[in-house]
Amino acid sequence: MSITSPGVLFVVSILAGFIGAMSGMGGGIVLIPALTLFGVNIKHAIAISIVSVIATSSGAASAYVRDGVTNLKVGMFLEMFTILGAIIGATVTLVSSDQPLFIAFGIVLLISWGTLFIRKHHLTNYLLPADRFSRWLELRGAYYDHAEHQEIEYQGRRAWLGGPCMFGAGFIAGLLGIGAGALKVLILDLAMGLPPKVSTTTSNLIIGVTALAGTSIYIAAGYVDPGLVAPVIVGVVAGAFVGTRLLKRLSNHAIRQFFLVVLLALGVEMILRGLGVIA
């Protein structure tokens, strides 16, 4: 771990936070491959990343929650499932060998990458009739959409399906030290029928608590190295901050496309390393 000087870590983390925000996939998914390229052991990289995920998700969630777009009830119901998944996922990582983690990471990266293309506006009516369980859970909500200049009302549906799926997303988050935001958004969108903005912001809220559940396992196992965590937290948050602000202004998607290619390359690279094709 000698090549990971705090200066290098700091720069890598800024880039990871920046690319994560620009591509909409979060910092961890770039940070972990980057750290392993710099010689950090993958389990340590996962532990460092999951701590930084708490910072980026809480920072982003604070603004979204105050805007009133996040659905707190949906978030708090689903957290029950994600934290259990995260604890089990992190425990599996501790006992696993390194190679399967590389492969799993590469696969999740590629799947998350793929979801960015299938995610289209598939619903125009968010008030479809819901099952009894979802109504009992009070998953109805509304927010003011500033882009469309109107109040959007919606009814969360199929909570019975969303809960178990979220256990899976939490498992991946704990296992690989990432937010797994792409998967969470997909569940909120497709399974529970929430409007895209509600899905994205509510996923962000859930990510922080999920990451904390995983972090506690990595701390207990002694994988959290404060000397490495310190520059990474600052770097990722700074990078994400700049990335988010820049994202609002960019109308052309060329840069975003470029980062998506970077993510694709990272996914393939992780799988090849896991298979032992490249060192």
Binding site: S62, V65, T70, L72
Partner: peptide, 12 residues
């Protein structure tokens, strides 16, 4: 929402 939002912001 305000309580949760400001809690998260101050923590970070």
């Amino acid at each position: 929402e305000l309580l949760v939002g400001y809690l998260l912001l101050s923590g970070v």
